[in-house]
Amino acid sequence: MTPSLMALIAAVAAGASAIGLLVAVAAWAGWLGDEHARRRGRGERKLRALAGLDGGAGRAAWWAGHRTRVLTGLAVLVVVWLATGWPIAGLLSGIAAANISWLFNPGREHAEKINRLEGLEEWVRRMSDIHTVGLSLEGAVIRSVATVPDSIAAPVRLLAGRLGAGWPPDGAYRAFADDLDDVTADMIVALMLLHVQDRGAGLGKALKDLSASVAEEVLMRRKVEADRAKPRANMRWITVFCLVVFGLSMFSGAYVGPYSSVGGQLAMIAFAVVFVLLLVWMRRMANLRPVPRFLSPADRTLSPAERAHAADERTGRSQR
Protein backbone atom coordinates (compact mmCIF):
# COMPACT_ATOMS: atom_id res chain seq x y z
CA MET A 1 0.00 0.00 0.00
CA THR A 2 1.49 3.31 -1.10
CA PRO A 3 1.87 6.24 1.31
CA SER A 4 -0.56 8.35 -0.74
CA LEU A 5 -3.26 5.66 -0.51
CA MET A 6 -2.71 5.33 3.24
CA ALA A 7 -3.02 9.11 3.61
CA LEU A 8 -6.27 9.07 1.61
CA ILE A 9 -7.75 6.30 3.77
CA ALA A 10 -6.70 8.16 6.92
CA ALA A 11 -8.30 11.38 5.64
CA VAL A 12 -11.58 9.59 4.79
CA ALA A 13 -11.65 7.90 8.20
CA ALA A 14 -10.98 11.21 9.96
CA GLY A 15 -13.74 12.92 7.97
CA ALA A 16 -16.23 10.13 8.73
CA SER A 17 -15.34 10.32 12.44
CA ALA A 18 -15.84 14.09 12.45
CA ILE A 19 -19.23 13.78 10.72
CA GLY A 20 -20.32 11.06 13.15
CA LEU A 21 -19.28 13.18 16.11
CA LEU A 22 -21.16 16.18 14.70
CA VAL A 23 -24.34 14.13 14.19
CA ALA A 24 -24.07 12.72 17.73
CA VAL A 25 -23.70 16.22 19.21
CA ALA A 26 -26.59 17.51 17.08
CA ALA A 27 -28.87 14.70 18.24
CA TRP A 28 -27.88 15.21 21.88
CA ALA A 29 -28.36 18.98 21.70
CA GLY A 30 -31.74 18.66 19.98
CA TRP A 31 -30.71 20.33 16.71
CA LEU A 32 -32.36 17.64 14.59
CA GLY A 33 -36.02 17.86 13.61
CA ASP A 34 -39.00 16.18 15.21
CA GLU A 35 -38.76 13.26 12.78
CA HIS A 36 -35.52 12.29 14.54
CA ALA A 37 -36.93 12.74 18.05
CA ARG A 38 -36.45 10.01 20.60
CA ARG A 39 -36.90 9.59 24.31
CA ARG A 40 -33.87 10.80 26.21
CA GLY A 41 -32.63 8.91 29.23
CA ARG A 42 -32.60 10.40 32.68
CA GLY A 43 -28.84 10.94 32.68
CA GLU A 44 -28.95 12.62 29.29
CA ARG A 45 -31.75 14.95 30.42
CA LYS A 46 -29.69 15.95 33.47
CA LEU A 47 -26.63 16.67 31.33
CA ARG A 48 -28.70 18.76 28.93
CA ALA A 49 -30.13 20.72 31.87
CA LEU A 50 -26.67 21.34 33.34
CA ALA A 51 -25.45 22.48 29.93
CA GLY A 52 -28.28 25.04 29.81
CA LEU A 53 -29.96 23.52 26.74
CA ASP A 54 -33.39 23.77 28.41
CA GLY A 55 -33.18 27.53 28.85
CA GLY A 56 -31.24 27.48 32.13
CA ALA A 57 -34.16 26.49 34.39
CA GLY A 58 -32.76 23.01 35.02
CA ARG A 59 -29.32 24.36 35.90
CA ALA A 60 -30.79 26.88 38.34
CA ALA A 61 -32.91 24.17 39.98
CA TRP A 62 -29.89 21.85 40.20
CA TRP A 63 -27.76 24.55 41.85
CA ALA A 64 -30.52 25.38 44.35
CA GLY A 65 -30.77 21.73 45.38
CA HIS A 66 -27.03 20.92 45.39
CA ARG A 67 -25.43 24.17 46.58
CA THR A 68 -24.57 22.83 50.05
CA ARG A 69 -23.10 19.60 48.69
CA VAL A 70 -20.96 21.39 46.11
CA LEU A 71 -19.60 23.91 48.60
CA THR A 72 -18.86 21.12 51.10
CA GLY A 73 -17.00 19.18 48.43
CA LEU A 74 -14.93 22.25 47.50
CA ALA A 75 -14.03 22.83 51.15
CA VAL A 76 -12.93 19.20 51.59
CA LEU A 77 -10.93 19.40 48.35
CA VAL A 78 -8.94 22.40 49.58
CA VAL A 79 -8.35 20.96 53.07
CA VAL A 80 -7.16 17.55 51.86
CA TRP A 81 -5.00 19.09 49.14
CA LEU A 82 -3.27 21.40 51.63
CA ALA A 83 -2.89 18.62 54.23
CA THR A 84 -1.41 16.01 51.89
CA GLY A 85 0.03 18.00 49.01
CA TRP A 86 -1.74 15.67 46.58
CA PRO A 87 -4.13 17.47 44.23
CA ILE A 88 -5.75 14.22 43.08
CA ALA A 89 -6.37 13.15 46.69
CA GLY A 90 -8.07 16.48 47.31
CA LEU A 91 -10.16 16.15 44.16
CA LEU A 92 -11.26 12.59 44.97
CA SER A 93 -12.03 13.51 48.59
CA GLY A 94 -14.08 16.50 47.46
CA ILE A 95 -16.08 14.36 45.02
CA ALA A 96 -16.69 11.76 47.74
CA ALA A 97 -17.84 14.42 50.21
CA ALA A 98 -20.21 15.96 47.65
CA ASN A 99 -21.71 12.53 46.90
CA ILE A 100 -21.78 11.11 50.42
CA SER A 101 -25.47 10.19 50.18
CA TRP A 102 -24.84 8.21 46.97
CA LEU A 103 -22.00 6.31 48.66
CA PHE A 104 -23.73 5.42 51.93
CA ASN A 105 -27.40 5.25 50.96
CA PRO A 106 -27.66 3.14 47.79
CA GLY A 107 -31.38 2.52 48.19
CA ARG A 108 -32.40 6.14 48.69
CA GLU A 109 -33.56 6.71 45.11
CA HIS A 110 -35.72 3.59 45.12
CA ALA A 111 -37.21 4.48 48.51
CA GLU A 112 -38.10 7.93 47.15
CA LYS A 113 -39.78 6.34 44.13
CA ILE A 114 -41.88 4.12 46.38
CA ASN A 115 -42.89 7.09 48.54
CA ARG A 116 -43.80 8.97 45.35
CA LEU A 117 -45.94 6.06 44.16
CA GLU A 118 -47.65 5.90 47.54
CA GLY A 119 -48.43 9.59 47.33
CA LEU A 120 -49.64 9.11 43.75
CA GLU A 121 -52.02 6.37 44.87
CA GLU A 122 -53.44 8.62 47.60
CA TRP A 123 -53.76 11.54 45.16
CA VAL A 124 -55.56 9.45 42.52
CA ARG A 125 -57.98 8.13 45.14
CA ARG A 126 -58.79 11.67 46.27
CA MET A 127 -59.11 12.73 42.63
CA SER A 128 -61.76 10.05 42.09
CA ASP A 129 -63.77 11.40 45.04
CA ILE A 130 -63.46 15.01 43.84
CA HIS A 131 -64.40 14.13 40.26
CA THR A 132 -67.45 12.20 41.46
CA VAL A 133 -69.04 15.36 42.87
CA GLY A 134 -69.33 16.86 39.38
CA LEU A 135 -66.07 18.71 38.69
CA SER A 136 -64.23 18.22 35.42
CA LEU A 137 -60.89 16.40 35.43
CA GLU A 138 -58.97 19.67 35.08
CA GLY A 139 -61.03 21.23 37.88
CA ALA A 140 -60.40 18.19 40.06
CA VAL A 141 -56.64 18.51 39.48
CA ILE A 142 -56.65 22.17 40.51
CA ARG A 143 -58.88 21.43 43.50
CA SER A 144 -56.60 18.59 44.65
CA VAL A 145 -53.60 20.90 45.13
CA ALA A 146 -54.81 21.80 48.62
CA THR A 147 -54.61 18.18 49.84
CA VAL A 148 -51.88 16.68 47.64
CA PRO A 149 -49.35 14.45 49.49
CA ASP A 150 -45.93 16.01 50.05
CA SER A 151 -44.07 13.38 47.99
CA ILE A 152 -45.75 14.53 44.74
CA ALA A 153 -46.68 18.08 45.73
CA ALA A 154 -44.26 19.77 43.30
CA PRO A 155 -45.33 17.84 40.14
CA VAL A 156 -49.04 18.22 40.94
CA ARG A 157 -48.68 21.97 41.54
CA LEU A 158 -46.81 22.26 38.24
CA LEU A 159 -49.62 20.36 36.53
CA ALA A 160 -52.27 22.63 38.05
CA GLY A 161 -50.24 25.70 37.09
CA ARG A 162 -49.90 24.53 33.50
CA LEU A 163 -53.62 23.86 33.22
CA GLY A 164 -54.37 27.24 34.75
CA ALA A 165 -51.92 28.95 32.36
CA GLY A 166 -53.75 27.63 29.31
CA TRP A 167 -51.76 24.56 28.40
CA PRO A 168 -53.79 22.01 26.41
CA PRO A 169 -54.66 19.14 28.77
CA ASP A 170 -52.87 16.67 26.48
CA GLY A 171 -49.52 18.48 26.77
CA ALA A 172 -49.94 19.25 30.49
CA TYR A 173 -50.61 15.61 31.36
CA ARG A 174 -47.65 14.39 29.30
CA ALA A 175 -45.40 16.92 31.03
CA PHE A 176 -46.74 15.63 34.37
CA ALA A 177 -45.76 12.09 33.35
CA ASP A 178 -42.27 13.34 32.42
CA ASP A 179 -41.91 14.96 35.84
CA LEU A 180 -42.79 11.71 37.62
CA ASP A 181 -40.76 9.56 35.18
CA ASP A 182 -42.32 6.22 36.12
CA VAL A 183 -44.26 3.64 34.14
CA THR A 184 -47.00 3.54 36.80
CA ALA A 185 -47.48 7.28 36.45
CA ASP A 186 -47.75 6.70 32.69
CA MET A 187 -50.71 4.37 33.34
CA ILE A 188 -52.51 7.12 35.27
CA VAL A 189 -51.70 9.78 32.69
CA ALA A 190 -52.82 7.45 29.88
CA LEU A 191 -56.23 7.24 31.55
CA MET A 192 -56.34 11.04 31.75
CA LEU A 193 -55.40 11.33 28.07
CA LEU A 194 -58.19 8.93 27.12
CA HIS A 195 -60.63 11.05 29.11
CA VAL A 196 -59.43 14.18 27.24
CA GLN A 197 -60.39 12.54 23.94
CA ASP A 198 -63.65 11.03 25.23
CA ARG A 199 -65.34 12.98 28.03
CA GLY A 200 -67.57 10.08 28.97
CA ALA A 201 -68.79 8.98 32.38
CA GLY A 202 -67.02 6.46 34.57
CA LEU A 203 -63.73 8.30 35.13
CA GLY A 204 -64.23 8.37 38.90
CA LYS A 205 -64.63 4.59 39.11
CA ALA A 206 -61.68 4.04 36.75
CA LEU A 207 -59.48 6.27 38.92
CA LYS A 208 -60.54 4.41 42.06
CA ASP A 209 -59.77 1.03 40.46
CA LEU A 210 -56.42 2.34 39.26
CA SER A 211 -55.55 3.62 42.74
CA ALA A 212 -56.19 0.13 44.13
CA SER A 213 -53.81 -1.29 41.49
CA VAL A 214 -51.14 1.28 42.40
CA ALA A 215 -51.54 0.39 46.10
CA GLU A 216 -50.84 -3.27 45.27
CA GLU A 217 -47.74 -2.28 43.31
CA VAL A 218 -46.49 -0.15 46.21
CA LEU A 219 -46.87 -3.14 48.53
CA MET A 220 -44.99 -5.38 46.09
CA ARG A 221 -42.15 -2.88 45.68
CA ARG A 222 -41.78 -2.53 49.44
CA LYS A 223 -41.40 -6.30 49.76
CA VAL A 224 -38.74 -6.29 47.04
CA GLU A 225 -36.88 -3.43 48.73
CA ALA A 226 -36.92 -5.35 52.03
CA ASP A 227 -35.25 -8.33 50.29
CA ARG A 228 -32.52 -6.03 48.97
CA ALA A 229 -31.77 -4.41 52.31
CA LYS A 230 -29.02 -6.94 53.20
CA PRO A 231 -26.86 -6.58 50.05
CA ARG A 232 -27.18 -2.80 50.32
CA ALA A 233 -26.00 -2.94 53.94
CA ASN A 234 -23.01 -5.04 52.84
CA MET A 235 -22.26 -2.49 50.15
CA ARG A 236 -22.38 0.30 52.73
CA TRP A 237 -19.92 -1.47 55.03
CA ILE A 238 -17.53 -2.17 52.14
CA THR A 239 -17.61 1.52 51.24
CA VAL A 240 -16.94 2.56 54.85
CA PHE A 241 -14.02 0.12 55.13
CA CYS A 242 -12.40 1.31 51.89
CA LEU A 243 -12.74 4.99 52.75
CA VAL A 244 -11.35 4.47 56.27
CA VAL A 245 -8.35 2.59 54.87
CA PHE A 246 -7.79 5.38 52.36
CA GLY A 247 -7.99 8.03 55.09
CA LEU A 248 -5.62 6.23 57.47
CA SER A 249 -3.12 5.52 54.70
CA MET A 250 -2.49 9.24 54.30
CA PHE A 251 -0.72 9.26 57.67
CA SER A 252 1.47 6.18 57.06
CA GLY A 253 4.53 8.16 55.97
CA ALA A 254 6.92 6.46 53.56
CA TYR A 255 4.38 3.75 52.66
CA VAL A 256 2.39 6.21 50.55
CA GLY A 257 5.43 8.16 49.35
CA PRO A 258 5.20 6.87 45.75
CA TYR A 259 1.83 8.59 45.38
CA SER A 260 3.61 11.95 45.45
CA SER A 261 4.89 11.37 41.91
CA VAL A 262 2.94 11.96 38.72
CA GLY A 263 2.65 8.22 38.17
CA GLY A 264 1.35 7.76 41.70
CA GLN A 265 -1.33 10.40 41.15
CA LEU A 266 -2.41 8.68 37.93
CA ALA A 267 -2.49 5.34 39.77
CA MET A 268 -4.71 6.94 42.42
CA ILE A 269 -7.14 8.03 39.70
CA ALA A 270 -7.17 4.49 38.26
CA PHE A 271 -7.88 2.97 41.69
CA ALA A 272 -10.70 5.46 42.26
CA VAL A 273 -12.27 4.69 38.87
CA VAL A 274 -12.14 0.93 39.56
CA PHE A 275 -13.65 1.49 43.02
CA VAL A 276 -16.54 3.52 41.59
CA LEU A 277 -17.14 0.95 38.84
CA LEU A 278 -17.32 -1.82 41.44
CA LEU A 279 -19.81 0.23 43.47
CA VAL A 280 -21.96 0.79 40.39
CA TRP A 281 -21.81 -2.93 39.59
CA MET A 282 -22.87 -3.85 43.15
CA ARG A 283 -25.69 -1.31 43.05
CA ARG A 284 -27.00 -2.76 39.81
CA MET A 285 -27.04 -6.22 41.34
CA ALA A 286 -28.97 -4.92 44.36
CA ASN A 287 -31.46 -2.81 42.39
CA LEU A 288 -34.23 -3.67 40.00
CA ARG A 289 -33.99 -2.40 36.47
CA PRO A 290 -36.86 0.09 35.96
CA VAL A 291 -39.60 -0.82 33.50
CA PRO A 292 -39.38 1.43 30.41
CA ARG A 293 -42.05 4.10 30.06
CA PHE A 294 -44.52 3.90 27.16
CA LEU A 295 -45.78 7.49 26.88
CA SER A 296 -43.96 9.85 24.54
CA PRO A 297 -42.45 12.95 26.19
CA ALA A 298 -44.28 16.27 26.17
CA ASP A 299 -43.27 18.86 23.57
CA ARG A 300 -42.09 21.86 25.61
CA THR A 301 -40.65 23.78 22.65
CA LEU A 302 -43.98 25.14 21.34
CA SER A 303 -46.02 28.06 22.57
CA PRO A 304 -49.40 27.39 24.26
CA ALA A 305 -51.23 28.37 21.05
CA GLU A 306 -49.07 26.04 18.95
CA ARG A 307 -49.58 23.23 21.45
CA ALA A 308 -53.33 23.76 21.32
CA HIS A 309 -53.25 23.65 17.51
CA ALA A 310 -51.16 20.46 17.56
CA ALA A 311 -53.56 18.87 20.07
CA ASP A 312 -56.54 19.79 17.87
CA GLU A 313 -54.81 18.20 14.88
CA ARG A 314 -54.12 15.01 16.82
CA THR A 315 -57.75 14.88 17.98
CA GLY A 316 -58.98 15.38 14.42
CA ARG A 317 -56.77 12.60 13.11
CA SER A 318 -57.94 10.22 15.85
CA GLN A 319 -61.58 10.96 15.09
CA ARG A 320 -61.07 10.33 11.36
Score class of each variant (00 low, 15 high):
Ser249Phe: 03
Gly253Tyr: 04
Ala185Gly: 15
Asp198Thr: 12
Ser249Leu: 12
Glu216Leu: 12
Phe246Ile: 15
Ser213Thr: 15
Ala185Ile: 00
Tyr259Leu: 14
Arg199Phe: 07
Val183Asn: 01
Lys205Ala: 07
Gly264Gln: 06
Gly171Ser: 15
Lys205Gly: 10
Arg232Glu: 05
Ala254Pro: 10
His195Asp: 01
Val240Glu: 00
Val214Gln: 00
Gly263Ser: 07
Asn234Gly: 11
Ser261Glu: 04
Met250Ser: 12
Arg236Asn: 01
Lys208Glu: 08
Cys242Phe: 05
Glu216Val: 07
Gly171Met: 14
Ala201Cys: 00
Trp237Glu: 06
Asp186Glu: 06
Met220Tyr: 07
Ala177His: 04
Arg199Tyr: 03
Phe176Tyr: 12
Leu248Ile: 14
Ala206Phe: 02
Ala229Asn: 06
Phe241Glu: 04
Gly171Gln: 15
Asp181Ser: 13
Pro231Trp: 01
Cys242Asp: 04
Val256Ser: 05
Asp179His: 10
Val189Arg: 02
Ala212Cys: 04
Asn234His: 13
Val256Thr: 13
Ile238Asn: 10
Arg199Lys: 10
Gly247Phe: 12
Ser213Ile: 05
Val245Thr: 10
Asp170Phe: 05
Glu217Tyr: 14
Arg174Gln: 10
Gly247Lys: 02
Arg228Val: 08
Asp186Trp: 11
Ser261Gln: 08
Lys223Asp: 00
Ile188Met: 07
Ala215Thr: 11
Leu219Asp: 04
Gly264Thr: 13
Val240Pro: 00
Leu266Thr: 08
Gly264Asp: 00
Asp198Gly: 05
Gly171Leu: 12
Val244Leu: 15
Ser211Glu: 05
Ser211Arg: 04
Ala254Gln: 10
Ser249Arg: 11
Ala226Asp: 02
